[in-house]
Amino acid sequence: MKFSVCIKQVPDVTAPIQIKEGQLHQDADRLVLDAYSASAVEESLVLTEKHGGNVEVVSVGPEKAKETIRKALAMGAESAVHISTDDNASYDSLSYAKILAAYYKNHSFDVIAVGKQSQDTDAGLTGGMLAALLDLPFATNAVGLEADPSANKIIVKRQGDSGQEMIELPMPCIVTCSNDMNDPRIPSLKGIMASKKKPVDTKTLSDLGLDAASLQADMKTQVLGFQSLPQREPGKKFEGDATELVGTLMNALQNEAKVL
């Protein structure tokens, strides 16, 4: 089976963030492999270990995205494609989907795995957009994945609104992965050493028949700025023994909040 995993480099969302004049500032300018992308890599590795095949990773981003690509190679992916963009270029989800679609049009694969969303924007659009552009069947929010290569299909367990849905998809197809799917492996020292020798094929937008200016011109969404979350009204905090606390709470819920 051939898995191709779209991975994204994101800012470390656990680092402190400040907003200055409507713009985001992070003290530690640390860039990491997106956690949902990591789950997509992990699941692809597990399935190829079980059924044979190989895992390729594909990332769109500036030169520094190479660090994140190496991380995925160190986890065990065999090869990588880096679609390089300008340092300061930023695109909306549809533009990224167009770039990825341009790459996949001329490449074969059984399954494209992507994160169900990314940690920085939580938009969750690109996987579905890519499926529409490539006219492929897809399933989102996968929490489990099994393959049946002889029948040329995969079985996706997706988290739906009121239960888990088991969906069968013929290959080739696209699956967007939840971080609840697995615990991505930490690269071993051996894996890190090996990653340095693995091939990274760098492509430019023009190699894919695209140009940055037209992509920018077609963009429909722009970021206007950032602001802090609204604060909730501070509430009341009670201490004491359990019986006393429950008494106070019951009184508040019945007579003040009137929700009982």
């Binding site: 656990t14 409507g22 985001l24 940690q119 700025g225 950032f226 979350l229």
Partner: peptide, 11 residues
């Protein structure tokens, strides 16, 4: 966005 730490204004 950013793990729900801030709000992004988009158009």
């Amino acid at each position: 966005v950013m793990a729900a730490k801030v709000l992004q204004k988009v158009k």
